[in-house]
Simulated assay, not measured.
Amino acid sequence: MDLFGGTISKLEKGISYSAIKQKTISQNISNADTPNYKASDVSFKDEFTNAISSMKANKSSIKHLDFSTSSGNPYELTERKGTYNHNGNNVDIDKEMAMLAQNQIYNQALVDRLNGKFRSLQTVIKGGK
């Protein structure tokens, strides 16, 4: 039985994505002065594919294909192109700090929503008391 219609697992995946993005941004910031360091980004590589895989296909023939695809992580780590600094580095510290703040807000929103789900479950277990 899936409590909350899979919301908790989706929030968990979002928090996992946020944690990896936080680590990546932190690595970019810590290597801001490293010569020839190329900044990395994290993005959802299969967001659309995952949305399609949750859809059910009505097949009228056994030759028809399912929508589902198998993928491990819903995100991918990519290297940014280009050079911004004199030492071959492409880390823009202002952009990284802004992305860090945005990711922290995103993470906190997910954690707050997850806590709300658990509080609802706790209320149900206690019988509404």
Rank of each mutant, 00 (worst) to 15 (best):
G6Q: 02
R80D: 00
K81L: 07
Q27E: 10
S26T: 09
S26M: 07
M99D: 11
S16P: 06
I62A: 14
S54H: 15
I29W: 01
Q27G: 05
S43Y: 12
H86W: 05
G14D: 02
K81M: 03
R80E: 06
K23G: 12
N58K: 15
D94N: 09
T7N: 06
N58L: 15
G6S: 04
D41W: 01
F44W: 10
S70G: 04
Q27C: 07
I62W: 11
S40T: 02
I62N: 14
T49I: 11
L65H: 14
N103M: 08
N36H: 05
S9Y: 11
K63A: 12
R80M: 04
N103E: 07
T69I: 10
T34L: 01
V42S: 04
A51V: 11
A32C: 10
G82W: 01
P74Y: 03
M55H: 14
T24L: 03
K23T: 12
L77E: 05
E76A: 08
T49D: 12
A32H: 07
A98S: 10
I62H: 10
S16V: 07
Y37P: 00
D41G: 03
Y84L: 10
K21G: 08
L65R: 13
Y17L: 09
K59P: 10
G5H: 04
S53Q: 09
L100R: 05
F67W: 15
N28V: 00
I25W: 00
S18A: 14
F4K: 08
Y75L: 08
T34N: 04
Y75Q: 08
G5I: 05
A39V: 03
N50K: 15
N103T: 10
A101V: 11
I29N: 00
S61M: 10
N31F: 02
T49L: 11
